[in-house]
Simulated assay, not measured.
Amino acid sequence: MNPVPELAPHLKQLRLSGILDSLEARNRQAIEGKLAYTEFLSLLIQDEVARRDQKKFDLRLRRAAFRAGKTLEGFDFSRLPNLNRALVHDLATGRYLAEKAPVLIVGPCGTGKSHLAQALGHCAVRQGADVLFTTQAQLCASLTAARAVGTAERKLATLARVPLLIIDDFGLKPMRPPADEDFHDLIAERYEQAATIVTSNLDFTEWDQAFPANRLLAAATLDRLRHNAYCLTLDGASYRAPKLAPAASKSAPAKQVKSTEF
């Protein structure tokens, strides 16, 4: 007798329909291995927990809005011999999340700042944290749009609650009012309440250039970002260096270009 047709509606009612995916295989395993009923039940429950964990992980990964599958395993440390690897691996444990501390990553274009930030974000997702990846430009645009429709406070509150907010390309474009004020308000709300990762092409001493219209606002914002922050400097060759064309063979005859008169 096949019990699945009778079990299916009850499992759905209990929101355990995922068990149906492995029920047949586990039932066969139990028969062949002469497992006790409790062992069989334990296997089914473990399968359900694993499915739910994977579903949560996939959902967090989609919500994070990473640009690509950038992970720490795929990061090329050999290109950055001066990078503090010990600190990177320490950050990968997620300790800064519990500390609600900022992580600031600077370096020239193409050195892997975005990759490293997203890799730390992936680690956080694996550890069960909600993450949001965005650029400074996208972040300011979303706050400006919310302000235009009267939902700025709600948007700010939502962003302030994200356990890990990753802001890429800080200072790439100077912020003008009211974007600079919105950015300050967000950092102030997150200060010592949630972890924030910021990447920038600017040196730390140049970060005030992102606030050309209000130096006082710059000082207040950066003071909060730098307090108890972990700092990483990436200094090496760009990953985006153009590939050189293969050298032409000296023995190959030169191609004749035909001219055409018009």
Score class of each variant (00 low, 15 high):
12 K>F: 04
15 R>G: 05
15 R>F: 07
17 S>T: 11
17 S>C: 01
17 S>Q: 14
28 R>I: 13
36 A>V: 00
36 A>N: 02
37 Y>T: 01
38 T>S: 12
39 E>I: 00
41 L>A: 10
44 L>M: 07
46 Q>I: 13
63 R>M: 07
66 F>Y: 03
72 L>G: 09
72 L>V: 10
74 G>S: 09
74 G>R: 10
78 S>Q: 13
79 R>G: 15
81 P>V: 02
86 A>F: 04
89 H>V: 04
89 H>T: 06
93 T>K: 15
93 T>G: 11
93 T>V: 06
94 G>V: 01
96 Y>L: 09
99 E>N: 13
108 P>G: 15
111 T>V: 15
113 K>L: 10
117 A>T: 06
119 A>H: 02
120 L>G: 01
121 G>C: 04
128 G>T: 01
134 T>V: 08
134 T>P: 01
141 A>Q: 12
144 T>R: 06
148 A>E: 14
149 V>Y: 08
159 L>F: 08
162 V>M: 13
164 L>N: 06
164 L>F: 07
165 L>D: 04
166 I>D: 00
167 I>W: 00
167 I>K: 03
169 D>N: 08
174 P>K: 05
177 P>D: 12
181 E>I: 11
193 Q>S: 08
195 A>S: 15
196 T>E: 03
197 I>L: 09
200 S>I: 06
201 N>I: 05
204 F>A: 10
204 F>Y: 12
207 W>R: 05
208 D>I: 05
210 A>M: 06
212 P>S: 03
218 A>G: 08
219 A>I: 10
220 A>S: 13
221 T>I: 08
222 L>Q: 04
224 R>I: 02
225 L>S: 07
228 N>K: 14
229 A>G: 08
230 Y>G: 05
232 L>W: 07
233 T>I: 11
234 L>P: 04
236 G>S: 09
237 A>Q: 09
237 A>D: 11
239 Y>L: 12
239 Y>V: 05
241 A>M: 14
246 P>K: 11
247 A>M: 06
259 S>Y: 11
259 S>F: 13
261 E>C: 14
262 F>Q: 13
